[in-house]
């Protein structure tokens, strides 16, 4: 990699074009694309700053990429900047997805299409499962963490607790356990 130029704050228009680029090119996970545009191509942040921003945005509820865009927009141009970042990231892919679903509705009765979408759905579910298991890697060898995980599954699926209650009850146990270094 060439020596990175000093990070510079983009103007509103420049910023929107950047996030638009992230939105339309982000196939299969947008995070690598965000890094590519923000750090490598446009040099608005250096690697260290990007990692800091990402770490914070991962700790806040919401999809990481959207959080990062809003975070950066707000830091650069206040609340308006945050809103502009949000819209420019999501508007184009939203239109694409809505077009896709309209096509799907029109062609849904064609058996080949129906079975194809079913295959796609199985693959998407498999992808989510793989992503979930990869997220479990940091505690993969910790039996207590898996026990807590199993309790969360049981409460959600078996007892049909809503997510807030599962997060609250198991979360308190988890944070306490992490504090005592059990996890």
């Amino acid at each position: 990699m060439a020596e990175s130029p000093k990070p510079c704050t983009p103007g509103k228009r420049e910023m929107m074009l950047g996030f638009l680029e992230v939105g339309i090119s982000a196939f299969g996970g947008a995070l690598p694309w965000l890094r590519r545009v923000v750090v490598e191509r446009r040099a608005w942040l250096d690697e260290r700053e990007f990692t800091e921003v990402l770490t914070i945005c991962q700790a806040i509820p919401g999809p990481n990429v959207v959080n990062c865009a809003v975070f950066l927009g707000t830091r650069w141009h206040g609340s308006l900047g945050g809103a502009l970042a949000f819209v420019s990231l999501l508007a184009a892919p939203l239109c694409v997805v809505l077009a896709l679903v309209t096509a799907h509705q029109a062609l849904g009765d064609v058996p080949a299409v129906r079975h194809g979408v079913n295959g796609l759905a199985i693959a998407a579910t498999a992808y989510l499962t793989a992503m979930t298991l990869r997220m479990a890697r940091p505690f993969a060898r910790n039996t207590r963490a898996w026990a807590l995980c199993a309790v969360a599954v049981a409460l959600s699926l078996g007892a049909e607790w809503s997510m807030g209650w599962v997060l609250l009850s198991c979360g308190i146990v988890g944070v306490y356990a992490a504090r005592r270094r059990w996890l």
């Binding site: 989510l128 499962t129 992503m131 979930t132 997220m135 479990a136 940091p138 505690f139 963490a145 898996w146 807590l148 995980c149 199993a150 309790v151 969360a152 599954v153 959600s156 699926l157 997510m163 599962v166 997060l167 198991c170 979360g171 146990v173 988890g174 944070v175 306490y176 356990a177 992490a178 504090r179 996890l183």
Partner: peptide, 13 residues
Amino acid sequence: AGLAPVTVGLMLA
């Protein structure tokens, strides 16, 4: 660290 197993559990569900 405390929330990670819970989040993974909900995702698995």
